[in-house]
Amino acid sequence: MRKIFRQADREAYITLGLYVFFFLWWTLFAFGLGAGDPDEYSYVLGLPAWFFYSCVAGYPAVTLILWLVVRRWFADIPLDAANDDERDENKGDE
């Protein structure tokens, strides 16, 4: 049972780290490239560069990173494991 909790804790920390990463990605591109005079903005595919990199390119990039992380470090944990442990303990009492 402890192994399940360690895995769940690890996945929660990884998820939190990825949320922070995406927040920083979006913030740095949006406010880093978006600061200043709008007349001086550079454009990518007709969109301001800050918007393109923070929203249009950022979402697919982070989605790909999330997919890779889930495939590599997340595990499929049965949700009924606690019930199985209780059943095994009760069998010893019979």
Results as ranks from 00 to 15, higher is better:
91 K>I: 09
42 S>K: 15
38 P>I: 03
56 V>W: 15
27 T>G: 06
88 D>H: 08
90 N>R: 15
76 D>S: 14
38 P>S: 06
3 K>Q: 08
16 L>W: 00
89 E>C: 00
4 I>Y: 04
3 K>W: 12
90 N>C: 06
49 A>P: 05
16 L>Y: 02
47 L>D: 00
76 D>C: 07
42 S>G: 05
67 W>A: 11
67 W>T: 10
56 V>M: 13
66 L>Q: 12
2 R>G: 09
75 A>G: 03
33 L>G: 06
66 L>M: 13
25 W>Q: 14
27 T>R: 01
7 Q>F: 00
27 T>Q: 07
87 R>S: 07
17 G>A: 13
60 P>A: 02
28 L>D: 08
29 F>I: 00
80 D>S: 11
90 N>Y: 11
67 W>C: 10
22 F>L: 03
41 Y>T: 05
56 V>A: 15
54 S>G: 07
22 F>H: 07
20 V>K: 10
19 Y>A: 13
92 G>Y: 08
82 A>E: 10
20 V>A: 14
10 R>W: 04
41 Y>I: 05
30 A>M: 08
68 L>P: 01
37 D>A: 06
36 G>K: 07
68 L>A: 13
91 K>F: 03
88 D>Y: 11
65 I>D: 08
69 V>Y: 04
45 L>F: 13
49 A>Y: 13
28 L>I: 14
31 F>M: 05
35 A>D: 06
34 G>Q: 03
22 F>Y: 12
83 N>C: 00
26 W>P: 01
10 R>D: 05
91 K>V: 07
6 R>H: 10
79 L>I: 10
13 Y>P: 00
2 R>F: 01
64 L>A: 14
20 V>P: 01
45 L>D: 05
42 S>E: 12
78 P>E: 15
84 D>M: 06
3 K>C: 00
18 L>V: 02
58 G>K: 11
31 F>L: 07
13 Y>G: 02
83 N>R: 15
28 L>E: 10
33 L>N: 06
25 W>F: 08
13 Y>Q: 05
10 R>T: 08
14 I>H: 02
21 F>G: 02
85 D>F: 15
34 G>Y: 03
67 W>L: 14
70 V>G: 01
68 L>R: 09
74 F>E: 06
89 E>V: 02
14 I>A: 02
92 G>I: 09
62 V>R: 07
22 F>P: 01
90 N>E: 09
81 A>L: 13
4 I>R: 04
80 D>A: 11
16 L>I: 01
1 M>N: 08
79 L>D: 09
48 P>R: 04
